[in-house]
Design a protein around this nucleic acid. Sequence first.
DNA 1: GTCTATAATATGATAGAC
DNA 2: GTCTATCATATTATAGAC
Lengths: 228, 228
Amino acid sequence: MLKNTAKSALTKLPGETAGAGSRHLILETAARIFRHEGYAATSLRAIAAACNMKAGSLYYHFESKDQIVSEVLDIGVQKVFDSVKSAVQALAPGATLGATLHCAIEAHLRALLHAHDFTSANIRIFGQVPAPVRESHRMLRRAYENYWREMLEQLQRDGAIRAEADLQQTVYFLFGAMNWATEWYDDKRFDLKLVANQMADLVVLGLQAAPERASPELRPKQRKKQVS
Amino acid sequence: MLKNTAKSALTKLPGETAGAGSRHLILETAARIFRHEGYAATSLRAIAAACNMKAGSLYYHFESKDQIVSEVLDIGVQKVFDSVKSAVQALAPGATLGATLHCAIEAHLRALLHAHDFTSANIRIFGQVPAPVRESHRMLRRAYENYWREMLEQLQRDGAIRAEADLQQTVYFLFGAMNWATEWYDDKRFDLKLVANQMADLVVLGLQAAPERASPELRPKQRKKQVS
DNA sequence: GTCTATAATATGATAGAC
DNA sequence: GTCTATCATATTATAGAC
């Protein structure tokens, strides 16, 4: 109604979104609202309003509400996965259990809390989205879970992790401990580096094959897994 | 419309709810649907239908949807809290770190997975309920968290937990690891006792003040916390 | 205690103007 | 690319019959 006379000259108003970024803005806004309100309570009108748009306009960028939620879910896992993969690849080839877990845990936590709206939305609403959306997202979750389990299995084969540790369960414990940070972590109360260190220390001491606190390098590596 | 002639003689039809159990049935049903659909997507019609009732009838037992969700949230925490408290109280007074954590973790997991609909609903929808509901439930959550932190602080004062461990964070890690089991635990794939043992072993080894695998009783206790 | 009927409001999605 | 208007449907909660 008011002042849309000079609109055709600009592709976009300089509100808070730049250039061709409407799609990104919608996804980020949707993630934030999904996180706080849940899947069903998040209306397209609410997403649009927070983007200074109207509900009908979202359909230019997305086919449906489910397509929006699908992309939000995938982004949440993909950002963390990418962060951990590239951090672990940068490690020296024969990195110790301690170095590997410190690195992977810190990378997971850093990406988790940096893309907070996407990751928190993912954890909170995964169980609430329509079944087809959930099933198609599940593959990516499984791939990330397998990545961690295979990393731990390699360390166990090298003798760095005690043979009795069940690594499938260990991955579940770790994911639970790390992802719960979306619910309690607060910049003002904690330092991310120190949180990562606390968690890594706990897990490394809990998993390692034998006490190696004093001089990690001097211990002979055990090969093969022990038969019970 | 059909056959409600002899209704006044019975207080209740023998459907699947006994005696004065309509309230309980509604709460259990609500918890199950809240868990799967989320807070907003759970309609009173859906809860009522699953109880073989009509939406309007719920208002005889509850004042509003928010009162139902409030009670569901509280029950989820209270059942776990009660279970852990009574299991820990049954321990010998000077129980070791290992005995205490094995006991508390198993009690938490057992109640968590036994009251699965209530506990899973609690974890999933806590962030989505209206603010007044969330705030009034938060006290109970905080009380349970304090219970665990104080238990760990006592063990640290006794020298059983290494002084560098941050116990506030440890409680967050533990809660995350334990509560995530609502998302992956499956009777057919796992044995609860073994899961509790795996988790307790990991945490005990990760927290203990010094390696005491061989003979826990022989180590001298350290008093006071070390100044850094 | 449970029912029917209804009030007031909100939803996802579509069509077509600009 | 974004808007307005609209359809068909669903929502919580209330009132009052039985």
